[in-house]
Design a protein around this nucleic acid. Structure first.
Lengths: 198, 198
DNA sequence: CCGAAGTGGATATGACATATCCGCTTATGT
DNA sequence: ACATAAGCGGATATGTCATATCCACTTCGG
């Protein structure tokens, strides 16, 4: 591993932190399509300063989101320890989507199927794997319908994400409602068999 | 009303149809961000020819989608005649989303909250109004939960739309699954009150 | 067969993001 | 204090891309 940390001058390191903080805010608010000029300006720095530390926007985004995503992966891993697999999955998804709710950049990164670094891709796979285990276990426990698979997770996350993008009225968080609705739909319902509407 | 149809030369009218047909296909396949150059080329025409008939992309898109959207509105209106309001709403949404499924441009138009013509906006409002009636009636009939409102329709449509945008595996149409899941979640469940999971 | 209508597509225009360059400033250690 | 490497700012070069126009040429239709 060619680990090179050329030891930055103190002010330079400070500006690096400012850049990261500004990028955090700007990406969270306006998404990954925000420009590095936007980020630099928001940090009160010149563009050149930002480009000195990060070769391009992708590198900056990865510096920010690799950690965040891995935190989410760790949460998923931790969820595996829960007794009730369904409840663990539910809690994990709610946690992960809470992160996404406050960070448009993260949302875009989660949703983006392609064009990302190995690092991010591997983390994503890790998350999916955990979800797979949880679903398998929930099925064993009889709390999730048999026809549900891991493949359903990504679409569900996408659906909830899309609601977050909606210019919805103010402070409420309608996504929680819909997540609850959908997750409830995944449940096995032995009591509710063959019900007819009329 | 300044209705002006300057009577086109026969070849010109033909090319106008070609343009509309090409735009239909291109917008359906690649969405509204496709350029008029794309459309013209796909129609086997020069760009100038397209611009001669349609001042800009928006006008072309409206020429195509005003009718489509109004058809959907008509379907919604017709749904009001159904006995079972819940079932009518379900059938309508499935119908409307079937249209959206095969037309990315339509999807984008439906989802776009703003920046559209009065015409389109009014049609959309009409659709929403019909859905409102259906929901109100379904609640009376006790087939839909009390806490559901018209405001839930747009997010639901958005969610399903977002699944359609996913580069999902081939020919299957997972959106039907999710629509069914969500709509089932809207149902009143008198049999399923206060159920505890453990 | 003439003139109005239509056509094509190269290209002007304008927006915009990315990334660089270089004269000036600042930190650091001796 | 000073020398010097490191860092800084931000104007600007570069590249990409969509929109829309223009005009020499062709075709329609009476």
């Amino acid at each position: 591993m060619s680990e090179e940390t050329p030891v930055l001058r103190r002010d330079a390191e400070h500006n690096r932190q400012r850049t990261l903080a500004a990028a955090q805010e700007v990406f969270a608010a306006r998404g990954l399509q925000a420009t590095l000029n936007d980020v630099a300006h928001h940090a009160g720095l010149g563009v050149g300063t930002v480009y000195r530390r990060f070769p391009n926007k992708e590198a900056l985004a990865e510096a920010i989101y690799a950690g965040k995503l891995d935190d989410i992966r760790a949460t998923a891993q931790a969820a595996l320890a829960g007794q009730d697999a369904y409840e663990a999955l539910r809690a994990f998804l709610e946690h992960a989507l809470e992160q996404a709710a406050t960070d448009r950049g993260l949302r875009e990164l989660i949703r983006r199927g392609t064009g990302e670094s190995k690092q991010i891709a591997r983390t994503r796979e890790g998350i999916v794997e955990c979800c797979g285990c949880l679903i398998a276990r929930a099925k064993e426990q009889g709390t999730v319908r048999d026809d549900i698979t891991v493949g359903d997770i990504a679409p569900i996350v996408t659906m909830i994400d899309s609601v977050m993008d909606l210019p919805s009225a103010g402070a409420v968080q309608p996504w929680r409602r819909y997540l609850a609705l959908i997750l409830d739909g995944l449940r096995a319902r032995p009591d509710h068999r063959g019900q007819r509407s009329s």
